[in-house]
Amino acid sequence: MSQLLFFTLSAMTILSALVVVFTRKPMYSVLSLIVCFFTIAGHYILLNAQFLAITHIIVYAGAIMVLFLFTVMLLNLNADSDVPKSGKLRIAATITAGMLFVTLLASIKSTTLGDFAFPPASDKGLVQHVGQRLFTDYLLPFEISSILFLSAMIGAVVLAKKEKH
């Protein structure tokens, strides 16, 4: 049952990720990225990590992608307003993408593919356990990252204020 779900979800993830890249319409690209995030959240639920799944949806699908959609809507990007790319740009893009491809290929080759098996159901991903670990073993990194977020927020406010003067 969960294997069937896993393969369905994986197919959907890959398909929606491909649509993000290949579609000519920015709006569809953003929307299929949202679908992609939902399928990844589905994978988390299969691993019994409910907290991670829900947080993933709240943060990525609920907050970040809304801002993406906002930008696309305001710029009103269309397929016909697509700027034609120059030859130089195309060559540069091919080289960069090719290099990334080689790196990925190398890293995939060096990993050994074990037997495909589902990890035994564990309750490690439940919110109680995640919270316990965060506030005991990983307290310092947790607090430091919260300070990082705070400074990012203050930075955004400062930048927004600057533009007025």
């Binding site: 907290f51 699908a61 609920g62 907050a63």
Partner: peptide, 24 residues
């Protein structure tokens, strides 16, 4: 759900998409 309240927040946070997509 043992994360019921977070599920509520998740649904609320994706609730705007219908309006945004329809309006656009």
């Amino acid at each position: 759900l043992n994360v019921g309240i977070l599920y509520l927040l998740a649904v609320v946070s994706i609730g705007g998409y219908g309006i945004m997509i329809g309006g656009w």
